[in-house]
Design a protein around this nucleic acid. Sequence first.
DNA 1: CTGTACGCAGTACAATGTACAGCGTACAGA
DNA 2: TCTGTACGCTGTACATTGTACTGCGTACAG
Lengths: 256, 256
Amino acid sequence: MPKERTSSGDPAHTLQLLWRGSSPDRRRGPRRGLSIDAVVEAATAIADAEGLAAVTMRRVAKELGVVPMTLYTYVPGKAELLDLMLDAAYARMPRTDTTGQPWRQRVTAIAEENKALFERHPWAAAVSTVRPPLGPGQMSKYEHELSGLEGLGLSDVEMDDCLTHLLTFVQACAVAVADARAAHHDSALNDQQWWELNAPLLARVLDENAYPTAVRVGAAAGAAHSSAYDPDHVYAFGLQRVLDAFAALIDRRGNA
Amino acid sequence: MPKERTSSGDPAHTLQLLWRGSSPDRRRGPRRGLSIDAVVEAATAIADAEGLAAVTMRRVAKELGVVPMTLYTYVPGKAELLDLMLDAAYARMPRTDTTGQPWRQRVTAIAEENKALFERHPWAAAVSTVRPPLGPGQMSKYEHELSGLEGLGLSDVEMDDCLTHLLTFVQACAVAVADARAAHHDSALNDQQWWELNAPLLARVLDENAYPTAVRVGAAAGAAHSSAYDPDHVYAFGLQRVLDAFAALIDRRGNA
DNA sequence: CTGTACGCAGTACAATGTACAGCGTACAGA
DNA sequence: TCTGTACGCTGTACATTGTACTGCGTACAG
């Protein structure tokens, strides 16, 4: 499926919510029983504990002791709620100060911070960021991460390119982890069990002569990690590749 | 959201479907009006034209001139249908013969084949592959792509690692494109229009002094590509990085 | 004191995957 | 040739989702 969050609402209103624009004038009527932050916090708690699929308007409302429709007086819709959740999560990310450290450590720190984000909030990997939440959290994150890439001799455009490349990689890893978790959740099998169940069945229908390389390499990879797909290894291996790639780009620039 | 497809059904049955296991004995009752292939083909046609969200059991059934529940006599459920769609798409991928070419061209060819897959079938990017469809299409694809990585001095495990890294990257790019398409579809705005709408609003709430690097780099990146996010550029830039990374790994191995 | 704006609640609807039960067909065995 | 049964297909039904709409009561502005 395409990812979640396709806010079709009014951009101005969404931005006002993200930046917590003050209420325009004195409020009439009964006092508000909740706050945007409370709604976002409740939704985030549910998502952290049970995954994004558990975040339904009814569920969030129940958690807050109100009826579902009440939420719509705080948030225009579910898409905007996801925007707010994501920007709040960005805002809460610890931002390591790596000034003075060698660039590989600085880039690694950026990756680790994002990895930690997705470990604390696995659902965040599943939220589309092609139209990012343009809130203070996102801005501050972007500012912080770009700072880590300054002084390497990269152009501004290359800095953005490299950051995008790095974050795309980390998010892709997180998506895989989240998918595995979701599959585990509603198939009652974890990845290893699933493979152990399928391997012998596959061996029966698979002609080893037809796929010699696949069988050989697949066996080697399966033996090397405990399972056929080891997320930690994919991340560790991939991060080294990304660092090597940046090194090549930086060297090229330095010699030019 | 987590991605689609969490087949909770019987693995043995799913494998039998993927490999088109013959019906065990002589059939009784009325003759079948359709075939698995027809169902898979119809679903794929809908997904290609209107996205994965348009693929509902009711819609597929209507396209085939049957009632929704009829599909369940061909396929155990929607998850398995997605498995079959994906494996069929894998099977149909053109497999370029790159024997004898330099390794960069061979790796590039693998990337391009996958990019083409996602261009022809954008929905494929949104289907989770942490538990891949273990069918003939997937197997043949894996065999083909591994062959392209042989003879580089990489170990079997490294071949698998590199392939995973490459495919993860290409799929991540495709996911972004698919997300943008989906957002365009149900917000009536394409990415460029969305940015043009948000940029001036953002400028009003954004303190330029608080995010100097972000504003500077963001402006440069936005000016360099026509939009703030250019999928083609992200792919082209990223592929070069992946190739550089592989080069570093291969060189290291060669010198070891 | 009163009118009105606004927070909150309840009902309602369309869309989804699919469980379940019934109906009719066409082959297996007589 | 006749009949029982396995099986393809249909129709109805249900739980779950986001959210539009309507009504009620509150608390501040005048």
